[in-house]
C-alpha cells in the first residue's frame, strides 16, 4: 500500500497526470456530446463506453509509461531491491496505484452521468455494468502498460510498445474484416482476432449484460500481463 500511495502521490505531482486527465475528458466530452447527449437519444452510456476504448488505448500508455521505466532510469529500482519488499509487492503496489488513478479518471465521467440523470432517466443496472466494463478494460490496459514499462528504461519505447499492443486489442475486430475468409486457417485467424478484440467483450458490458466469458477475458489478460511483468522484474535480478 505504501508503494501504491507513493505512486499515486507522484502521479499527481507530475504534469503527465493532468495531461492525461485533460485528454481523457476532452475525448469523452467529444464522444458524449456528439453521440450520447442528443435530445431524443436513449439515456444510456452505451456508446460512450463503446467508443472509450479508442481513447483509452492512447491515453493509458501515457499514464503507465513511466511506472517502471522511470525507476530504472533514475536508479531507484536498485534502492527498492535492497529494501525488504519483494518483486510481487512492488508490482502490486504499482498496479494498485495505476488502477487508482484510472478509477479517478472514470470518476470524472460522473459529470456525463450527472447530465444524463438531469435530462433523462438512465437505467442504473446498465450504468453499473458500463462502469464495471470500463474498470475491467482499464485493468487490462494498465497491465499491458505496466509490462512494457517494466521492459525498458525508455519511456517512449514503453509507451510505443503499449500503444501497439493495445492498438491490436482495440482494432483487431475491425482488422479481422480484412482477412479473406476463403480457407480454414484464415477463418480461424478471423475468429481469433474477433475474440481478442476488446470491443467484442466490452459490448455486452455497455449493453448492461454481464457474461462470464467477458469477465474471464479481461481478468485473464490482465493476469497474463501482470505475470509477465513479474517475470521481467524477477529476471532483472539475474542480469
Amino acid at each position: 500500500m505504501t508503494i501504491a500511495k507513493r505512486e499515486v502521490t507522484s502521479l499527481f505531482f507530475s504534469p503527465i497526470a493532468y495531461i492525461v486527465m485533460f485528454l481523457f475528458l476532452l475525448y469523452m466530452g467529444l464522444v458524449f456530446a456528439g453521440l450520447v447527449f442528443v435530445p431524443g437519444q436513449l439515456t444510456e452510456l452505451r456508446r460512450l463506453v463503446d467508443f472509450s476504448r479508442f481513447g483509452l488505448f492512447f491515453i493509458v500508455p501515457l499514464m503507465t509509461m513511466s511506472l517502471f521505466s522511470d525507476e530504472y532510469r533514475s536508479g531507484r529500482i536498485e534502492m527498492l531491491r535492497t529494501s525488504p519488499i519483494t518483486e510481487f509487492d512492488l508490482l502490486l503496489g504499482k498496479f494498485i496505484g495505476a488502477m487508482f488513478f484510472f478509477l479517478i479518471l472514470l470518476g470524472l465521467t460522473l459529470i456525463h452521468l450527472t447530465l444524463l440523470m438531469i435530462f433523462g432517466h438512465p437505467d442504473y443496472g446498465q450504468t453499473f455494468s458500463c462502469y464495471l466494463g470500463l474498470a475491467l478494460m482499464g485493468m487490462m490496459f494498465v497491465s499491458v502498460g505496466l509490462f512494457y514499462s517494466s521492459c525498458t528504461q525508455n519511456q517512449i519505447v514503453a509507451a510505443l510498445g503499449s500503444l501497439l499492443t493495445l492498438g491490436f486489442f482495440t482494432f483487431s475486430g475491425g482488422l479481422s474484416e480484412l482477412i479473406p475468409g476463403s480457407t480454414k486457417i484464415f477463418e480461424w485467424i478471423h475468429s481469433a482476432m474477433i475474440y481478442l478484440s476488446v470491443g467484442t467483450h466490452l459490448e455486452d458490458f455497455s449493453k448492461g449484460v454481464l457474461d462470464t466469458s467477458h469477465l474471464s477475458y479481461f481478468l485473464g489478460f490482465s493476469a497474463i500481463f501482470l505475470f509477465m511483468t513479474y517475470l521481467v522484474l524477477e529476471s532483472r535480478k539475474w542480469r
Binding site: 437505467d123 453499473f128 455494468s129 449493453k207 448492461g208 454481464l210 457474461d211 462470464t212 466469458s213
Partner: peptide, 17 residues
Amino acid sequence: ALYMTNTHKLHADLTSG
C-alpha cells in the same frame, strides 16, 4: 479458465426491464 467460461457462460442481464 477462458475455455470453460466461453463454453459454460453465465449471463446476467442487469437492465431494469
